[in-house]
């Protein structure tokens, strides 16, 4: 039992650590790689939950995280970047040091929020929740500090990794795993099919800043 918890904490911790790695990437391809690694870590964490809870349906989630987010989506993103000739550097709005500092602060915050509140018998869910909340908040931080549309999408997908970690940590939660997997597919579809290509139709850059000029209320 102890070892089982240790392993699940180790894997969830790895997902969190990779969230930090995502935060300081300055090049798009490095960002994709870091995201792929995070998704593989997530797949392992979910796989371990499936094994230790004896919930075989979670293996599907693990496999999908591995194949979809660990391989297909980063590969497709790389293809899009090459095909569309997108500028491969990301200019962060906030400096890397400050971003990392904020990230640490967010982790402390989520521990402080979750620990006093969740007093569960097994103790598994409590730490898992803190990990998951940290990943979610770091994903949001990434969406705020990157004005680049692709950076924001990666931020959102890493946020979603946190959600899946939380959902699989909650024992016997019905429907949700299937649902969240379906949504990650849907989101990928939306992002590629609709937005990125349409943004490309109208702009030479994929920088979201270029869009902010278009507000109807501009003076």
């Amino acid at each position: 039992m102890e070892t089982s918890i240790d392993i699940s904490h180790f894997l969830a911790g790895a997902v969190l650590a990779l969230s930090f790695v995502l935060l300081y990437q300055a090049r798009l391809f490095a960002l994709f790689n870091a995201f792929a690694m995070q998704s593989i870590a997530l797949a392992m964490a979910v796989g371990w939950q499936a094994y230790s809870q004896g919930a075989s349906h979670l293996y599907i989630t693990a496999a999908l995280a591995l194949v979809m987010k660990g391989m297909l989506i980063p590969g497709a993103l790389r293809w899009v970047v090459v095909k569309m000739g997108i500028h491969r550097q990301i200019d962060p709005v906030v400096s890397v040091n400050l971003t990392l500092l904020l990230g640490v602060f967010l982790v402390i915050l989520s521990i402080m929020v979750v620990f006093p509140v969740a007093k569960m018998e097994g103790g598994i869910a409590r730490e898992d929740l803190a990990f998951a909340l940290s990943i979610i908040l770091l994903g949001m931080l990434m969406m705020i500090t990157r004005r680049n549309a692709i950076g924001q999408v990666i931020g959102f997908m890493s946020l979603e990794n946190g959600l899946i970690l939380a959902a699989t940590g909650a024992k016997g939660m019905p429907l949700v795993v299937e649902i969240s997997v379906a949504f990650s597919v849907l989101i990928a579809f939306f992002v590629f099919g609709v937005f990125i290509f349409r943004i490309r139709e109208h702009f030479d850059t994929i920088d979201v800043d270029a869009l902010s000029e278009m507000r109807g209320d501009a003076e």
């Binding site: 937005f195 943004i199 702009f203």
Partner: peptide
Amino acid sequence: PQAIEAAW
């Protein structure tokens, strides 16, 4: 462009 920004 406006519609795309709004949707995004």
